[in-house]
Design a protein around this nucleic acid. Sequence first.
DNA 1: GTCTATACGCTGATAGAC
DNA 2: GTCTATCAGCGTATAGAC
Lengths: 204, 204
Amino acid sequence: MAQDRAPTRIQKKNRAAILEAALEVFSQHGFRGATVDQIATAAGLSKPNLLYYFPSKEAIFKELLSGLLDTWLAPLHALDPQGDPMEEILGYVGRKLQMSRDYPRESRLFANEIVQGAPRMIDSLSTDLKNLVDEKVQVLEGWMAEGRIAQTHPRHLLFSIWSLTQHYADFDVQVRTLMGDEDPFTAAPAFLDTLYRRMLTPER
Amino acid sequence: MAQDRAPTRIQKKNRAAILEAALEVFSQHGFRGATVDQIATAAGLSKPNLLYYFPSKEAIFKELLSGLLDTWLAPLHALDPQGDPMEEILGYVGRKLQMSRDYPRESRLFANEIVQGAPRMIDSLSTDLKNLVDEKVQVLEGWMAEGRIAQTHPRHLLFSIWSLTQHYADFDVQVRTLMGDEDPFTAAPAFLDTLYRRMLTPER
DNA sequence: GTCTATACGCTGATAGAC
DNA sequence: GTCTATCAGCGTATAGAC
């Protein structure tokens, strides 16, 4: 980052390694609990060398967050107003659950931050996320008005999807402790599928 | 705590003030993010004086956790095998939701700890919580076998109740950001009531 | 019981040699 | 670009006066 030249291969590789290591450490300990030393070690660099690539711990964290937010919101973005309502919603639930299984660190990174009041994320929440949610709430309300899914509170419906799916990543320790040998992700898809099918099927 | 005599009124008051302050600070910043100074200030004591009552930051945290765990598990404990299944479960959901509204700090304290792998709680999880859950899973399975509620995965059912209700405490910032002026706890009870009624009503 | 003063390790960040 | 050495500040905990 010393020059504004195009980054060399080494620079790209090191920056990527730092962000990967930062995801690992931040998601496990939170911003305050993580140390630059841990991240540097995990990235295979010395502490000063890491700080050659990023000016501060805070800068690493912010870049990490903004880089991940798009990926994180992609499943909701993909909810298609033209598609079949029930299939769209169940598909969204399924994709979110898969993300909890395949990218638990990302989930915990956000969870850590939000539980503590989202001091470094509140802007993204009240702009990017709010806009996206407002847009998709309209879609859900349209489907409800047409009687294609059951009437319910659209925002609480979204909250429920987030909490139910992310729970398997964020509270992984607890879930696994209580499930013993059984893999949580074996039964979870069918469980959530049934739940939302019963909840959202119209005419009752 | 210097003597093993019965605590004076001042000692009881100070210990209570410390634990109250610790709940406030730990729940907001997590164990690592909290400082003894913050807790002492919030409790109206000097730092050394606080450490006269508790030997260390860790000791405060542990006492806080163990003191709160019973309260936290009380709603599940109250699930009555002799009661009407649907009413029992809906009552449990309602009580858990109320706790998220009335005791959000407790919820966030546990959330912080578990998201980070529950390093100081794993023992309680695998003994106290596991036993309680195993016991109540039996109850739920009995009700399902008798056809009094719909067949579903009892553990995932419990996870769903926890995640849906605690979400309103743990992710409070996000929820409020996305709800605007509307109080989340206005519509949430009816939403969850409907959800579980549809999910658990038998014969379909 | 409570305070001031302080020891001491850890952490974020910088200086400067190579 | 990367390293060793180092600094300043914070945070936990203790010593010792009152």
